[in-house]
Design a protein around this nucleic acid. Sequence first.
DNA 1: GGACATTGTTGATCCAGATCAGCAACCGTT
DNA 2: AACGGTTGCTGATCTGGATCAACAATGTCC
Lengths: 247, 247
Amino acid sequence: MDVHELKISCQKCRLSELCLPYGLESEELDRLEHIVQRPAPLRRGEVLYRAGGSFHAIYAVRSGALKIFSGSEDGHEQILGFYLPGELLGLDGMDKDLHKCTAVALETSSVCTLPFNQLSVLCEKIPGLQKRLFRLIGREIGVEHELLLMMGQKDAEERLAIFLVTLAARFKRRGYSQSEFRLPMSRHDLANYLGLTPETVSRLFGRFRKNGLIETNRSLVKLLDMSRLVTLCAGPEDAGRLAAVMN
Amino acid sequence: MDVHELKISCQKCRLSELCLPYGLESEELDRLEHIVQRPAPLRRGEVLYRAGGSFHAIYAVRSGALKIFSGSEDGHEQILGFYLPGELLGLDGMDKDLHKCTAVALETSSVCTLPFNQLSVLCEKIPGLQKRLFRLIGREIGVEHELLLMMGQKDAEERLAIFLVTLAARFKRRGYSQSEFRLPMSRHDLANYLGLTPETVSRLFGRFRKNGLIETNRSLVKLLDMSRLVTLCAGPEDAGRLAAVMN
DNA sequence: GGACATTGTTGATCCAGATCAGCAACCGTT
DNA sequence: AACGGTTGCTGATCTGGATCAACAATGTCC
């Protein structure tokens, strides 16, 4: 029980319009607030939930960043997503009440815990909440579809360009700079997520740097030419679809 | 309005335990039944919904098979999934009330249409239905995670083995032979789904045939050595995780 | 502040699967 | 049954990114 617990609430949370509470009435927010738990922050490398562990809650990121990954521990794991403040994770456990992937903090991170049974009950009583949850689930599925499209159709250069452009958009929506940010994940994790090797990612950063598209300094990235970067996302041809992502 | 409409019901549907109705009381089933629409069957190649079209329902496959795909029409499309009887599709539209991918029948197929607004309302009133829907959504996300793992970590041989083994399991659950079945999709679609080219898939079929793992005749496939096939799924090493899929 | 592990970069080589190309089997149509 | 059109098979070649290897930069722990 710390002071943070007392001060933080969905009502005041500046992420609420990205997160589950969006669109709820004040009274409804109160009821949601009532089931939210706010455990102590995770430090870099700490596990939020583990593959095979029982599923009892979904989580909203409040600060920091997390990754989820699945797969054999023998180094053949696959990173399935990175989660930023305002994003929901843990949905994969809904199937069998077991998590099928592991969630780990990439840096010091706070999450809000939404016990799933209570959340379900609340969804029955608050149609707006159910609707919002469905939307966020739909978004999650859509993001995964984009990722599959990338893995199946895009070459290495396109993948990194897409990653940078969509990450920039996500930072922008959260009120951060879209042109200058810190990558919360290692090169290794980034490469794994993109279905590439760290060496390839490193070379691509080098090429983008040489071509004046970006500047990098360790985990800091500065996007110098967003429009050219967007063009790269779809290969030489059509740059239409991705432009939409940028709003 | 045809005779089929009168005779078919969730109550009698032998797929109901795979599908949304599973676990519902008879009275609850009645209410679900009440919102289900059963449009005329789709013929091969016909579109169930189209990317960019408005989302107003999710669909349960009653017979046949469908594929969904996203991406630019310029031949860079990516097939995201194949759907068999008892499976739900259309969830990707929940985000923005717009479908982001296109669903097409691979062969003559019947679907049950579940208007989403009505389904949502019903979920508020029937907790068991909401719970079931969440489970099926969780399964969908889990399947996509498996697919991403495959795209990121598996080589061509492993991919085809995984595909055959999991497809066999899906047929088995539906009461069909798990060792002998017809592939509803073309080699082109299969290759695209697996992130490969038709040539590579064809060569793999050839190799599997030569090694006595399968027999093929056009779209007919016979699995001759399931255990060896399962072994191939995880590469030379651990065959543990995939074995679970087979039940 | 120095030793050592970890992470990232760069260069040289290799290979799984793509690409290109030709052909065979099957389709529905007249 | 002759036909173009589609789909699948197989062989030859090419290439993007993996792999192997060395090294540089950074961080961490005494």
